[in-house]
Amino acid sequence: MEERQRLLLLVEDDAAFARTLRRSFERRGYRVLHAVSAEEVQELLADYGPAQGPQYAVMDLKLAGNASGLNCVQMLHQHNPEALIVVLTGYASIATAVEAVKLGACHYLAKPSNTDDIEAAFSRVEGRTDVEVSRQTTSIKTLEWEHIHETLAETDFNISEAARRLGMHRRTLARKLEKRQIK
Score class of each variant (00 low, 15 high):
1 M>P: 07
1 M>A: 10
3 E>H: 09
3 E>I: 04
3 E>C: 08
4 R>Q: 11
6 R>C: 04
7 L>A: 07
8 L>V: 00
9 L>F: 07
9 L>Q: 06
10 L>F: 03
13 D>K: 13
14 D>R: 12
18 A>S: 08
19 R>G: 04
19 R>Q: 12
19 R>I: 00
20 T>V: 12
21 L>A: 06
25 F>T: 01
27 R>K: 13
28 R>Q: 14
29 G>L: 08
30 Y>T: 01
31 R>T: 01
33 L>H: 11
34 H>F: 01
35 A>L: 05
35 A>Y: 05
37 S>N: 06
39 E>V: 04
42 Q>M: 09
42 Q>D: 08
42 Q>A: 12
43 E>L: 14
43 E>I: 05
46 A>I: 00
50 P>S: 09
51 A>N: 10
54 P>K: 07
55 Q>E: 14
56 Y>V: 00
57 A>Q: 08
58 V>T: 02
59 M>N: 05
62 K>N: 05
66 N>G: 06
71 N>L: 13
71 N>W: 03
75 M>L: 15
76 L>R: 09
78 Q>R: 15
82 E>L: 13
84 L>T: 01
84 L>H: 07
86 V>N: 04
90 G>C: 02
91 Y>E: 04
99 E>T: 06
102 K>T: 00
103 L>Y: 04
105 A>F: 07
107 H>F: 08
110 A>H: 04
111 K>Q: 06
111 K>P: 00
113 S>P: 05
114 N>H: 05
114 N>W: 05
115 T>R: 03
117 D>E: 10
119 E>N: 07
120 A>Q: 15
120 A>E: 13
121 A>T: 05
122 F>E: 03
123 S>V: 04
126 E>S: 09
126 E>L: 12
129 T>F: 15
131 V>Y: 14
135 R>K: 10
136 Q>H: 15
138 T>Y: 11
139 S>L: 10
139 S>P: 02
142 T>G: 01
144 E>A: 05
146 E>G: 08
146 E>F: 14
147 H>A: 14
147 H>F: 12
148 I>Y: 12
151 T>K: 09
151 T>C: 10
153 A>G: 09
155 T>M: 15
155 T>F: 09
156 D>W: 12
157 F>E: 07
159 I>H: 14
159 I>C: 02
160 S>I: 00
160 S>L: 10
160 S>T: 08
161 E>Y: 11
162 A>V: 02
163 A>Q: 09
165 R>C: 03
168 M>C: 10
168 M>V: 08
168 M>T: 00
170 R>A: 01
173 L>K: 13
174 A>G: 01
179 K>H: 14
180 R>N: 10
182 I>M: 13
182 I>A: 05
